[in-house]
Simulated scan of single mutants.
Amino acid sequence: MSFSMRLSEQAEVAGSVAVNLEWARRPQYGRYLDEFVPGQVFVHPRGFTFDRAAMLDFARVFMQCNPLYLNLEYAKAHGFPDLPASPQMVFNVVLSLGVHNDSEKAIANLGYYNVQFLRPVYSGDTLRGYTQVVDRKARGEDKPGIVLIRTLGVNQHNQVVLQYERKIMVDWRGDRLPTTPAPTTPVEFPWVEHPVVDLPINAGNYPSQLTGPNTYFEDFALGDLIVHANGRTITDEHMALTYLVGNTHPLHFDRVYSTGLSGKMSGEPIVYGGLVFAWLEGLASRDVSENALWELGFTEGYHTQPAVSGDTVAAMSRVIATEVLPNTDAAGIVTFQFIGVKNISAAAALETYGADLFIKENDKQKLSKEKLSSKIFEIERRLLIKRHPA
């Protein structure tokens, strides 16, 4: 079916239509605590088509050093049919797709859990997002509560590319305007209970000099602590980048909104945490992940302090496990504890705080230790890393 219509001259009519303030609409997005129902499934709007230019821009802006996300011929030599998107970009996009329904009313993002990357995303792939409400914990109607959700991203073939759990802190609605109604039509939620990572990897035949000589699987031993040399100062660029990945929470780009809040969150727009994570990971990439073949996932990740424009972030990585794979001699798995700090170099942070940097901030109270104001991020990550070339 096609549509055709002759356009008439467009006349101004606003002056002839009376203004009726009672007809004003005020659409609201996200959810308040009492609007989350366990078992509910949200289909997130819009979707996101990846293209090579945006993928390369993201990898460069966030200082990615793994040639897998920068060099098409390198990716092909390692068995990938095309340049794969950086996992950080996939993570940011899928999380951002869900903000419209999940967390646009959230006070805080409390943590990431069981993040798993199941398959690559290539230029031309289109991702859609789904979220299922798992649990809702109230602490009294005068206090915000906590919602546990599961979110996943699927490609145009209905294959899950990423899935994870997240906790968000949300206020009760009270006398505020209700948000957009939840869908009433049942929706399937294709969470993968026993995921299998299927990668098109071969041994590769490409110059090994494009990466450093000491970032292969054999170069990491249990207990190694890598202090990443460079920091990264974040500017107001973060506001444009937030919307570039599709995040719609006004806390990250609306100064009128952010300064109108009360309490600790009032002030300049807060940098979207996914971007902070991406910059920290990029700062570490030439030291730990430039020879990675795949980001397997993240466990127990927390933004322990917010960042704003003008803050400088830095990172360090600690090897907490290595695993030899029985079915391949091409790669092994290395698990890192990954720490981010702000407004202090990683080296100075290590000298100042020592081993306390590697204690979870949520555990500090029971250990009679103070939380660290300079520490902004903590997570564990598992990487599939190439072995040294023969």
Score class of each variant (00 low, 15 high):
S2G: 11
F3V: 14
E9L: 11
Q10N: 07
A11M: 12
A14Q: 10
S16W: 03
V17D: 01
A24E: 08
R25P: 00
Q28G: 12
G30T: 04
R31D: 00
D34A: 05
E35V: 02
F36S: 02
P38V: 02
P38T: 02
G39K: 04
G39P: 01
G39E: 04
V41Y: 01
V43S: 07
H44F: 03
G47H: 04
F48I: 04
D51P: 01
Q64G: 03
N66C: 05
A75T: 03
H78K: 08
H78R: 10
P81S: 09
D82I: 02
P87W: 00
Q88H: 11
F91R: 00
F91E: 01
N92C: 15
L95C: 08
G98M: 06
V99F: 01
S103E: 04
Q116N: 09
L118Y: 01
T126E: 11
R128V: 03
R136N: 02
K143Y: 09
G145K: 12
T151L: 03
H157N: 07
N158L: 01
Q163I: 00
R166I: 11
K167H: 02
I168N: 05
V170W: 01
W172F: 14
W172V: 00
G174L: 07
L177N: 09
A182E: 01
E188S: 12
V192M: 13
V192R: 15
V197Q: 14
I201F: 15
G204N: 06
P207V: 00
Q209T: 10
G212T: 12
F217E: 10
D219H: 14
A221Y: 11
A229M: 11
G231D: 12
R232F: 13
I234A: 10
I234Q: 09
T235Y: 10
A240D: 06
V245L: 06
G246N: 09
T248R: 10
P250M: 06
L251Q: 11
L251T: 08
H252D: 07
G267F: 07
E268H: 13
V271P: 06
Y272W: 13
G273S: 13
V276T: 15
S285Q: 08
R286N: 10
D287H: 12
L296P: 01
L296D: 04
T299C: 05
H303Y: 12
H303T: 03
Q305G: 09
V308K: 13
S309N: 08
P326Y: 09
A331R: 03
G332F: 06
G332P: 10
I333H: 03
V334N: 07
T335W: 04
T335S: 15
G340W: 07
K342R: 15
I344P: 10
A346H: 12
A349G: 09
G354Q: 08
D356C: 04
F358P: 03
K360V: 04
E361M: 12
N362G: 13
D363R: 15
K366E: 10
L367N: 10
S374T: 11
I379A: 10
L383I: 04
H388W: 02
A390Y: 09
